[in-house]
Simulated assay, not measured.
Amino acid sequence: MSNSPGSVPANLNGDGIRVGVVQARFNEEITNGLWAACCSELLRLGVLNEDILHITVPGAMEIPIALQRLAFSGEFDALVALGAVVKGDTYHFEIVCAESARGISSVALAHDVPVVNMVLTTYTEDQAIERIEDKGVDAARAAVEMGNLMMTLDDNLPGADDEVEDDE
């Protein structure tokens, strides 16, 4: 894709990018693989080991509150949610998928920090296993790109990094 006037090219240089990663332990074989691929790619892109915080939570429903705490800290340029929800025989799958996704998205919008949602939602464990490597890498690349994009916008748009003030 060529750069046109006024465009902002993708920047995958992880130098100086601080990333918080929240990993669900449920379906741990899958989520450990996602984390390994994500961490490896973050380091390959130039994110320093000391600029990565990795924490784990019990499952996908607990990811949003942990992300929110990280977002509140103001210490991260991007956050990543890693998890795996595999369909079972009950409606619980739909609730977990929808509510974790809603919570993850709300953190990004409420705190003005990019949050990469890489909670796999699959019909079978095999489908999730097939996606581990690619999706872990995708999560890292999206986090670095979005962290850089937000910094570029902060530097180039008037008022982009200003806090939104409440009308009281």
Score class of each variant (00 low, 15 high):
residue 160 A to C: 02
residue 120 L to S: 01
residue 154 D to I: 12
residue 157 L to A: 10
residue 83 G to R: 05
residue 74 G to C: 06
residue 137 V to W: 04
residue 133 E to P: 10
residue 41 E to T: 15
residue 68 Q to T: 00
residue 42 L to Q: 06
residue 154 D to S: 15
residue 132 I to G: 08
residue 149 L to N: 10
residue 146 M to T: 10
residue 76 F to Q: 04
residue 29 E to M: 14
residue 33 G to H: 03
residue 166 D to P: 04
residue 55 I to W: 02
residue 159 G to H: 10
residue 113 V to T: 02
residue 105 S to I: 04
residue 122 T to P: 09
residue 115 V to G: 01
residue 43 L to A: 04
residue 85 V to T: 12
residue 165 E to M: 13
residue 122 T to F: 03
residue 86 V to H: 09
residue 1 M to E: 13
residue 161 D to Y: 09
residue 146 M to V: 05
residue 83 G to F: 00
residue 19 V to D: 10
residue 22 V to N: 00
residue 56 T to W: 14
residue 89 D to F: 09
residue 96 V to A: 06
residue 63 I to G: 01
residue 75 E to Y: 08
residue 163 E to W: 02
residue 96 V to H: 03
residue 104 I to H: 08
residue 55 I to Y: 02
residue 153 L to V: 14
residue 64 P to H: 06
residue 127 Q to F: 03
residue 144 V to A: 00
residue 98 A to F: 01
residue 143 A to I: 02
residue 165 E to R: 14
residue 124 T to P: 01
residue 50 E to H: 12
residue 107 V to N: 06
residue 151 M to Y: 01
residue 107 V to W: 01
residue 149 L to G: 03
residue 142 A to W: 09
residue 137 V to Y: 11
residue 115 V to I: 09
residue 21 V to C: 05
residue 55 I to E: 14
residue 72 F to P: 10
residue 138 D to V: 04
residue 4 S to K: 13
residue 129 I to Y: 14
residue 134 D to W: 06
residue 26 F to D: 06
residue 133 E to D: 13
residue 5 P to N: 09
residue 141 R to A: 00
residue 61 M to T: 11
residue 2 S to Y: 03
residue 7 S to V: 00
residue 63 I to T: 07
residue 147 G to R: 03
residue 156 N to Q: 13
residue 18 R to K: 15
residue 150 M to H: 13
residue 109 L to K: 07
residue 139 A to C: 08
residue 121 T to Y: 05
residue 61 M to P: 09
